[in-house]
Design a protein around this nucleic acid. Structure first.
Length: 215
DNA sequence: TAGGCCATCTGGTCCT
DNA sequence: AGGACCAGATGGCCTA
């Protein structure tokens, strides 16, 4: 039942490093995001004026609005916006890479056959959920039989917690999700969209757990 | 070729 | 203000 250790997380490298999308050009970015109208914008009248008749008005306009030339500010703003967007994109990419790494790590500890195709993200989550549920059931059954065989021993709750195997309340055998509504994992799982308890009864003997049982 | 899966970009929202 | 998180959009790749 042990996860095969040779199944090192298959980190996708090629698709992660390459940029399938040529990054949207800076101009497109700035055009797409509608810049708020600037209070220091030169009046359209003046912008359209060809001759110098507008200069007096422009001078007054600048005097009224701080006197700074508008194009310079817009350029700076545009550059700042582009820079922020680019940094946000990098962070988002890293965040998703971290998420994928965690998923790969999770795949690594799930018992699958080497020949099996790589689990998709949703399959990995469902598999892990069902696997944990089955292991929990296994522990519960083992716990009960142990208690029946050796009545004088302290309750299993104390045994388990004293060994530090599980943090928290050992008496809580189900995940927070399962506990939220019911103590029956099967019932609680069915309430979750996309997450269901194994359709076929999962064999609770650890050695007999198989990949197909959890999907 | 349609559909599934995925990576990335993007803008919005919330939090520190 | 800047970062984290999220969901929608988009397009590429792969398979039945």
């Amino acid at each position: 039942m042990a996860p095969h250790p040779s199944d090192a997380p298959a980190i996708q490298t090629s698709r992660q490093t390459e940029q399938p999308f040529p990054s949207v050009s800076d101009d497109e970015v700035t055009c797409a995001s509608s810049a708020p109208p600037s209070p220091t914008r030169v009046s359209p009248d003046c912008a359209e004026a060809q001759g110098g008749g507008c200069r007096e008005g422009e001078r007054k306009f600048r005097a009224r609005h701080g006197g700074r030339s508008r194009p310079k500010n817009e350029l700076a703003l545009s550059r700042q916006r582009r820079s922020r967007r680019k940094k946000a994109n990098d962070r988002e990419r890293n965040r998703m890479h971290n998420l994928n790494s965690a998923l790969d790590a999770l795949r690594g500890v799930l018992p699958t056959f080497p020949d099996d195709a790589k689990l998709t993200k949703i399959e990995t989550l469902r598999f892990a959920h069902n696997y944990i549920w089955a292991l929990t059931q296994t522990l519960r059954i083992a716990d009960h039989s142990l208690y029946r065989l050796e009545p004088p021993t302290p309750p299993s709750v104390e045994l388990a917690s004293s060994e530090g195997g599980f943090p928290g309340d050992w008496g809580s055998l189900y995940s927070p999700i399962s506990q939220a509504s019911s103590l029956s994992p099967a019932a609680s799982l069915e309430e979750l969209p996309g997450l269901q308890a194994p359709a076929t009864p999962v064999c609770l003997h650890p050695g007999a757990l198989s990949f197909s049982d959890f999907l």
